[in-house]
Design a protein around this nucleic acid. Structure first.
Lengths: 110, 110
DNA sequence: GTTTTATGACGCAAACATACGACATTATTG
DNA sequence: CAATAATGTCGTATGTTTGCGTCATAAAAC
């Protein structure tokens, strides 16, 4: 019943990136990682009003799409933004919107 | 079980915009509307490999988030991009990514 | 005024996402 | 090596999205 494979590769990828941002918790996590000058581990869970388990899942999701990286440091894990990848993602969105806006508004009125 | 209301307004709004883009069909619809020099009605269904009903739902979703407008013209409906609103959305994403990238990559290595 | 055409609304089933507690794992601490 | 701490994984409940067929509606064509 899922039909995403019917669409072209580029559309699918942009949709996946958008999906990764499609939850306020994940936006908040990215915000928090950007603000903490160095990358923090499970302190993220304390900043997000969700259970540790749920936050862990959101982190996994963000990692899967390349927004963040995790570095094991003993028992702890340091998560941080992947700035290079973020630049790519930013560019993908920008180019998409540029494409949409490259034509003047059509005359929709009858 | 839904906990979005626990997050701040801005995060919620960005998440909703991202959600609207989180399906390849909706990306494809926006692409198509951008390419057709004037706005087209149900021809969109013919361009998207999904049933007319499903496309209609995706259109409703895009309209709800302000990406597109629909103008009734007799039996037909002309859909078109809302360029003004698109500019706002584009800006919101840009500012979000700027914020994330405003700090140098933290030193994640041990 | 009946038929056709273009659409949206409704309802349902299958797939996915979200949220969480309980368990497993692994590194440190004592 | 036992206890503790920091995490991830699994299973499960519930909520949401996707996709579609059928029906309703309303303009246009006959």
């Amino acid at each position: 019943m899922i039909k995403t494979e019917l669409f072209n590769q580029q559309d699918q990828e942009l949709a996946l990136m958008a999906k990764a941002l499609a939850h306020p918790a994940r936006i908040a996590i990215l915000d928090f990682l950007a603000q903490s000058s160095c990358c923090i581990s499970g302190d993220i869970s304390n900043e997000i009003p969700l259970s540790r388990t749920t936050v862990s899942q959101h982190l996994t999701e963000l990692k899967k799409m390349g927004f963040i990286q995790g570095t094991v440091e003993g028992v702890k894990i340091n998560y941080c933004l992947d700035n290079e990848k973020l630049k790519e993602i930013k560019l993908a969105f920008e180019q998409f919107f540029e494409k949409l806006l490259s034509k003047p508004n059509p005359t929709c009125e009858v």
